[in-house]
Design a protein around this nucleic acid. Structure first.
Length: 448
DNA sequence: AGCACA
């Protein structure tokens, strides 16, 4: 083919166009700065920056050709060149007649962010860690995660584009703080653009997606393993589906733990409806039923691993039961339905100083309504709850990522690190004396 | 410092 191209690559005089081509821009240049640059000469109807391999070119499109001519004419005779951020920019008529707006969704500010987590161990970043990181900028409505060729990605939905933008500006290119990640995993860098989505569809709470606006959303059946009991988190930890019934096993039971003691301890978080105690594996276990899941979640997170008695005695291990409503045949010293306690006589009840309900022997500081709404889920208490409720006057523990795995969506407004202190803890009973229901002081390092 | 295909 004979060459038919005889036009020089560059001409010093371009045919006028309402589109101007700019070069030698700083790469930080924004579309807003382009608008500011063109505004004195007319109505800027479109811009495009970060063009070209070096991302240092741009286009400005005016509403009218005369406005483009005005700008070119002005700078052609001006002693001051056009500048962006102090850098001289060169401009000429573009050889295009309009900016073709290939604005991808990534360029349009929206309330949903597309987050790519970069790093060898990106997949090990849990959805809870992402939730914590992004919650610093506002209420996170929903998160979905997925694998694409780009790697491990997440969509993070905020209320509005402004909040999303503040998160994007602060986090894009930054790495997730090390203390939020399991020790063995490498650095994880966030790359953030806008997503075209405005409202994510989250059908289930799972290790892949969460809807923090709807704590009652069912747990994904697909996330439940063969035993039907656990879901597996991204971090490989097994997570149980939440339940209003807690299964408590008691370790190092040097002192008798009575049903009344359990009732007192667990009543700190809300009304206890039923308790059933039984022996299993040579130890004592108990099922504690609350009216709702929220209360059980708060109780579990506050009490797990802590001891009923000071000094490491009667350490509680809590999990969610698969029961939702215990069947209490008779009220006795091993099982009780507190709704029936006024009707059905207590059978075989051991005489006990603690036998009188409710909650005797609160010898130290608790206010009269200590067991009340103080530790209720925030959506029942209202927001904010810090001033009146948990951790009042108590320095919250440092952010504890290990607790986040359980920070399921039940309390969407709970700021991180503000879990309640350990209510209901008691000093060990004196020798041969039933337990004293005194409150142990809060200790940030927990009570081993 | 010279026209976009993300």
């Amino acid at each position: 083919m004979a060459s038919v191209s005889s036009q020089p690559q560059f001409r010093y005089t371009q045919p006028p166009s309402k589109v101007l081509h700019l070069r030698n821009l700083p790469w930080e240049c924004t579309e807003e700065e382009l608008v500011e640059l063109g505004k004195p000469f007319g109505k800027v109807i479109n811009t495009k920056c970060n063009v070209g391999a070096n991302r240092n070119q741009a286009f400005i499109e005016f509403a009218d050709l005369n406005q483009a001519i005005a700008m070119i004419s002005y700078y052609a005779s001006s002693s001051e060149p056009a500048q962006v951020r102090g850098k001289t920019v060169y401009l000429q008529y573009s050889n295009r007649q309009e900016i073709v707006n290939n604005k991808t969704a990534a360029d349009v500010a929206g309330n949903v962010l597309l987050v790519t987590i970069e790093g060898a161990d990106a997949r090990l970043v849990s959805i809870d860690v992402l939730h914590l990181v992004f919650s610093a900028f506002g209420f996170v409505h929903k998160i979905t995660t997925f694998e694409k060729t780009a790697g491990f990605q997440a969509l993070v939905q905020f209320s509005d584009a402004e909040t999303a933008t503040s998160a994007k500006n602060a986090l894009d290119g930054r790495s997730i703080p090390r203390y939020l990640l399991p020790e063995q995993i490498g650095p994880c860098t966030l790359r953030i653009t806008y997503s075209g989505h405005t409202d994510l569809s989250v059908k289930f709470q799972s290790h892949r997606s969460r809807d923090y606006t709807n704590p009652y959303l069912p747990v994904a059946p697909s996330a439940i393993d063969g035993s039907g009991q656990f879901i597996v988190g991204l971090d490989g930890k097994k997570l149980e589906p939440e339940s209003n019934v807690l299964l408590a096993s008691i370790e190092n039971m040097q002192y008798a733990v009575t049903l009344d003691v359990l009732h007192m301890v667990f009543s700190s978080f809300g009304p206890v409806q039923k308790i059933a105690m039984f022996d299993k594996n040579g130890g004592v276990q108990a099922l504690i039923q609350y009216p709702d899941i929220q209360t059980a979640v708060v109780a579990k997170e506050a009490l797990e691993g802590h001891c009923i008695y000071d000094g490491g005695f009667c350490k509680l291990h809590l999990s969610y039961s698969r029961h939702t409503d215990l069947s209490i045949k008779v009220n006795n010293d091993r099982s009780r339905d507190y709704a029936l306690s006024n009707v059905v006589p207590v059978v075989n009840a051991q005489p006990s100083i603690l036998g009188q309900q409710p909650v005797p022997m609160m010898t130290s500081n608790p206010p009269p309504h200590y067991s009340g709404a103080q530790f209720a889920p925030p959506e029942q208490v209202g927001v904010p709850q810090n001033s009146s409720g948990w951790a009042a006057g108590v320095p919250g523990p440092a952010v504890r990522p290990q607790s986040l795995a359980m920070a399921m969506p039940s309390h969407p407004y709970m700021p991180p690190g503000t879990m309640p202190a350990h209510p209901g803890m008691m000093h060990p009973p004196n020798q041969g004396v039933p337990p004293q229901a005194t409150m142990a002081p809060y200790r940030p390092d927990g009570m081993q």
